[in-house]
Design a binder for these strands. Structure first.
Length: 447
RNA sequence: GACCCUAUCGUCUAGUGGUUAGGACACCACCCUUUCACGGUGGCGGCCCGGGUUCGAAUCCCGGUAGGGUCGCCA
């Protein structure tokens, strides 16, 4: 039997990082087995769902590279879709639910209650054979003992999650339900529903949740909870995907950075860990740095220009060769593109503001004549390239009887306004003689 | 309150009865070095607790504790 899995988010306006991982694991399993990955939008809560909220999900999944084999083609619920089992928006599937509710009603497996329809839930414990968690025997809670039956259709006629979820999984021929562990307790209800419809439930795999660094539940407003922030901060999808693979799954050979193709090859549900994982932002950042450093130049330029533009720095005003040369000195140094404006923005503006703390330390009366002497040496340096500038600076330092570092810091501060940045000699070469001397003169005039 | 899941360095993990408990991130030190990164070397640091089973338990069983989840006319 061909594997059919689905990611079934509710359009709430954001895509939770845990949801992204759920999508990833579904996608990985589909790719591993040669199965079908389906995207289904659970937009039954009409009041809350907007097309824009759907767009967030589609864009997020596309950004991650998790393309679906069946599902919507656009965020329009009534719009086109691919796949034989559509539509893939629950809001467009009313008749499926209606028909199923009527069937249950007709067979006495459901009944009306105050205008709503309730399902007759079995009183006996239900055993869930979970591919990740193992065998789980779910008993009724004390509140459920009082009334085990649950609403499947609201008094306004709208179907409820448990019903729509099960009906769609059934109609869409889902073979494996891979979802967050927060649904484990609900699974007994779903199994009971499947049985009431006279079919075998799909296989279940409940994956552990992603928690905040402090171990608490990661909710909407927690840092890093929304996929959008990673997109906006300039993370690379391949880095985030790699990191997410390592949360609850392991290649078991001590590797951290692992090509997605290999994950697909080795991934299996039985290897998924059973415990929740805390989100380690630092480790993601490290992986991000690894991927960022190895980026092909063209993609690095493209993402850099975009990040700079977002910070109000228009690189189009500069010669393309200058822009590329400038960015080359930043590559391998920054980890996330959101760092770039602060790190390499000085290439693209002349109104350098000096780090006050550093200015106090390096723009001293003692350093002024030294910097002046170096400035004059730079004015004569020929050619104006990194090796010559380095030799010039070191020779000047020797003449002055100081260590090169004594000159390096004030020069860097004058050119960039900061104490950390790209290689000093290379950044001066990129700036060129004119700008470099201008900046040194400007700095010399401030103290 | 009830039900369910989980428990290895701070964090992510390897480990399935016999290991000096391995790796990665982070942290610290040193090296490299024009700053910062990168890289290299070394270091710090862990089997939640208590019972059992066994010659032997991180590993199996039971109990506790802790964390997480669920019990909705939200999904």
């Amino acid at each position: 039997m061909k594997v059919r899995v689905r990611f079934a988010p509710s359009p709430t306006g954001f895509l939770h990082i845990g949801g992204a991982r759920t999508a990833l694991f579904n996608w990985l399993y589909a790719r591993h087995t040669g199965g079908t990955f389906i995207l289904r939008i659970e937009d039954t809560d009409a009041a809350r769902n907007t097309q824009q909220a759907v767009e967030v999900i589609l864009q997020g999944l596309r950004w991650l590279g998790l393309y679906w084999d069946e599902g919507p083609l656009t965020s329009d619920a009534t719009g086109p879709y691919k796949g034989e089992r559509g539509p893939y928006f629950q809001s467009q599937r009313r008749e499926f639910y209606q028909r199923r509710v009527e069937a249950l009603l007709a067979r006495g497996l459901a009944y009306e209650h105050e205008g709503a329809v309730k399902f007759r839930m079995p009183r006996e414990p239900i055993t869930i054979h979970d591919l990740v968690v193992g065998e789980v025997v779910r008993k009724l809670t004390d509140r459920e003992e009082l009334d085990p039956d649950f609403v499947i259709q609201r008094s306004d006629g709208q179907p409820v999650f448990h019903l729509t979820n099960v009906v769609d999984d059934l109609e869409m021929g889902i073979t494996h339900v891979i979802r967050g562990e927060d649904h484990l307790s609900n699974t007994a209800k779903h199994i009971a529903l499947f049985r009431a419809f006279g079919v075998e439930p799909p296989k279940y795999a409940h994956i552990p949740l992603i928690l905040n660094p402090d171990g608490t539940k990661m909710s909407k407003r927690d840092r890093g909870a929304s996929l959008t922030t990673y997109m906006e901060e300039g993370f690379l999808p391949e880095a985030l995907v790699n990191y997410l693979c390592l949360l609850g799954w392991s290649p078991k050979d001590n590797r951290e950075k692992i090509p997605l193709a290999e994950v697909i090859e080795r991934f299996d549900l039985s290897q998924i860990l059973r415990h929740n994982a805390r989100f380690d932002f630092e480790k993601l950042l490290w992986l991000q740095g690894e991927y960022c450093r190895e980026l092909p130049d063209d993609r690095f330029y493209e993402l850099s220009v975009h990040a700079l533009a977002k910070a109000g720095i228009d690189t189009n005003r500069f010669d393309l060769r200058y822009v590329k040369a400038a960015l080359d000195t930043c590559k391998g140094k920054i980890k996330v593109f959101s760092e770039l404006p602060a790190y390499g923005g000085f290439y693209f503006r002349d109104d350098i503001t000096y780090d006050p703390e550093a200015a106090k330390q390096h723009f001293t009366p003692e350093n002024k004549p030294r910097l002046q002497k170096l400035r004059d040496a730079f004015a004569r340096a020929e050619p104006f390239d990194a090796p010559t500038l380095e030799a010039t600076l070191k020779a000047t330092a020797a003449e002055l009887g100081v260590k090169p570092a004594v000159l390096v810091h004030p020069v860097r501060l004058a050119c960039t306004g900061r104490t950390a940045g790209p290689s000093l000699y290379h950044l001066m070469e990129v700036l060129g003689r004119e700008k470099t001397l201008q900046r040194l003169d400007r700095a010399l005039a401030t103290f």
